[in-house]
Amino acid sequence: MSSTTVISTPSADLATFDRTTSRWGRLTMIAALVMSLAAPLYLVLFADLGITQTQVWIAFLAVAAVFSVLWVVEPITYYPILGPAAMYQAFMIGNIANKLLPSALVAQAAIGAKAGTKRGEFSALMAICGAAMVHVFFMLVFVGLLGSWLVTIVPADVTDVARLYIFPSIIGGVIVQLVVSLKQPRVTLIAIATAGFVFFVLVPAIPAIANLATGITVVTTAVLAWFLRRKPRSDSTKEIS
């Protein structure tokens, strides 16, 4: 650890690694953040679409009502699994649960590294690098080049139907996927009952709130799910013991 030694020590090497990955991880993420916001901002400000600031804020607040909890909870949830360096990769590349985590686990298994060790952390990091490169390549080639070309040759009535019905054809599958993967039957029933009540009773009664229906459903579901939750069994065992 002496400052006069020229041979780098393991802990100094790891400290350099931490410093490099967190500095460059942050810098590249901020760059991606700025560029991803610049694109829609260009349309809003310079495309002469007559969009007001109020319209943007209302739309953002409606989206925030639904997703703001996840903005904070997801990073906290994934941190123990990913570690600091991979956090900056994961939240930029996306598809964490269905692509990045499986890749990291496969890599750790391939070299016999345990999660939570330095070996495991490095293995996961390299696996996510590998996954990122495959994904970037596939997206640019199959979506960026082939996909764009495909849209130009597909008959207009097919793309019109795709545009019109893409949302219902996503939403049905996503709901089933969520219900199965979250395994929270009680919350699921509360959500469906609340959504049904808001849509079939509340909105017909007060048409002015139609645009807020999703936000109202989300907040009500969250409140009901919290107060109607199954109380942990540990409470009852405490009383017995």
Binding site: I175, V187, A195, G196, A213, T217, A225
Partner: peptide
């Protein structure tokens, strides 16, 4: 509970 409720509430509402 809260994140699950937010997701399920949002997608149930959008689905309905």
């Amino acid at each position: 509970i809260i994140p699950a409720a937010a997701l399920l509430g949002a997608f149930a509402s959008l689905g309905i």
